[in-house]
């Protein structure tokens, strides 16, 4: 069955086209829309978006593959992204990552069997004054302590 935007997603797509004088400029936000609608940016999703914007699927692939925030394979319900760049590392980020890895029994890039958590290492998230920190889906969690990490992860159903 061919992929298609739901009515609300189609409406959102039409709205965001108005932000740009040329259609193809809407590619990055369209890929986010597709990722939310379809779960991840599959090859089918790329072809669908290419059709909507009048660009080649190869162009869409190049863009989707270039940026880290488009996932070409499904990720868990909660994408746990731990910053390991220098300011965070100075305040214990490596230990944070190890702690979470042990708690969730995950190595970098892995997903829990119940599909709840995926664990990733990421670069600087621009919150260095509150290091160490992590991003889970849309939210930043800063000034992490072991207790805070437990509270946050245990609270995510």
């Amino acid at each position: 069955m061919a992929l298609q935007f739901s009515a609300p997603a189609q409406a959102e797509f039409n709205k965001l086209l108005k932000n740009y004088p040329v259609k193809e400029a809407a590619l990055l936000p369209s890929l986010y829309l597709a990722q939310r609608e379809f779960g991840h940016v599959s090859l089918e999703a790329m072809e669908y978006v290419a059709g909507l914007l009048g660009v080649t699927p190869a162009r869409v692939y190049g863009v989707a593959a270039f940026y880290t925030m488009y996932h070409q394979a499904p990720v868990g319900k909660y994408l746990v992204q731990v910053c390991l760049n220098l300011p965070c590392a100075l305040r214990g980020a490596e230990e944070v990552f190890e702690y979470i890895g042990k708690k969730l029994k995950l190595k970098e890039g892995e997903t829990t069997p119940d599909q709840r958590f995926t664990l990733m290492k990421v670069e600087c998230l621009g919150a260095c004054g509150n290091a160490p920190m992590m991003q889970i889906n849309d939210n930043y969690y800063e000034d992490l302590t072991p207790a805070k990490v437990d509270e946050i992860l245990d609270g995510l159903k």
Partner: peptide, 27 residues
């Protein structure tokens, strides 16, 4: 005035990469 979200690329802080990204291209 519009907001436009990047998608995870430090290089898009470089002004011409930013422009390319805004146009729907690789940064």
């Amino acid at each position: 005035v519009y907001t436009h979200l990047g998608a995870g690329a430090y290089i898009c802080g470089e002004e011409t990469a930013l422009i390319n990204s805004l146009e729907g291209r690789k940064g």
